[in-house]
Design a protein around this nucleic acid. Structure first.
Length: 176
DNA sequence: CGATTTTGACCAGCGC
DNA sequence: GCGCTGGTCAAAATCG
């Protein structure tokens, strides 16, 4: 999994919905104003009010240089972990993007009243991780942080997420 | 019965 | 060096 560019499975086919993610990076980025926590670098471009769900999307390019000098336990080569965070307006924490996720942890964040859930892709050979976090400031905002990239097809009908992507593209075009 | 969730413990990185 | 915070593991519990 050396490919760290996009989190969408459609990056190889380059569908019309894939370039929208590039558009979102054009927004202004502020570091320490998102949650007051670690300066990760969140890109926010969502408007205050749009429509129903998933209207305010954020994009995060967090190059956490997590380098391990020597193999301690896992023996994994953790050189660089690019993370991509999405800020979604939703009432539910579980944003089904079409993949199968297995929850492997949950921790409470300091600045957030809501705990952060850690998920892992259950696909064989796919070590994509994702963490879902809800903002204590806005309980209707859910931040989903993806880590890694899927190299396998979705075993579900991604019609739902595709619909969301389409809406995101429309909103992005209107916003920009 | 298998897969997944829950929850506490453990560990590593960072700041003081 | 110690304490805090964040991330992962693993065993038990739960669900389908």
């Amino acid at each position: 999994m050396e490919n760290d560019q996009a989190i969408f499975p459609c990056s190889s086919s380059t569908p019309p919905a894939s370039h929208l993610s590039l558009n979102m990076v054009n927004s202004h980025a502020y570091n320490d104003n998102f949650q007051g926590d670690k300066a990760d670098g969140y890109f926010n471009m969502g408007g205050p009010n749009f429509s129903d769900f998933s209207q305010s999307q954020s994009f995060v390019g967090t190059e956490s240089t997590n380098e391990v000098k020597s193999d301690k336990k896992k023996g994994e080569k953790k050189v660089k972990k690019p993370k991509y965070a999405f800020q979604t307006r939703s009432q539910v924490d579980i944003l089904d993007d079409g993949y199968r996720w297995r929850k492997y942890g949950q921790k409470a964040v300091k600045n957030n009243k809501f705990p952060r859930s850690y998920y892992r892709c259950t696909h064989q050979g796919c070590h994509v991780k994702k963490q879902v976090q809800r903002l204590s400031k806005d309980e209707g905002v859910v931040v989903t942080t993806y880590e890694g990239m899927h190299s396998h097809p979705i075993n579900k009908s991604n019609d739902n997420f595709e619909h969301i992507l389409t809406q995101m593209q429309i909103y992005t075009a209107q916003n920009l």
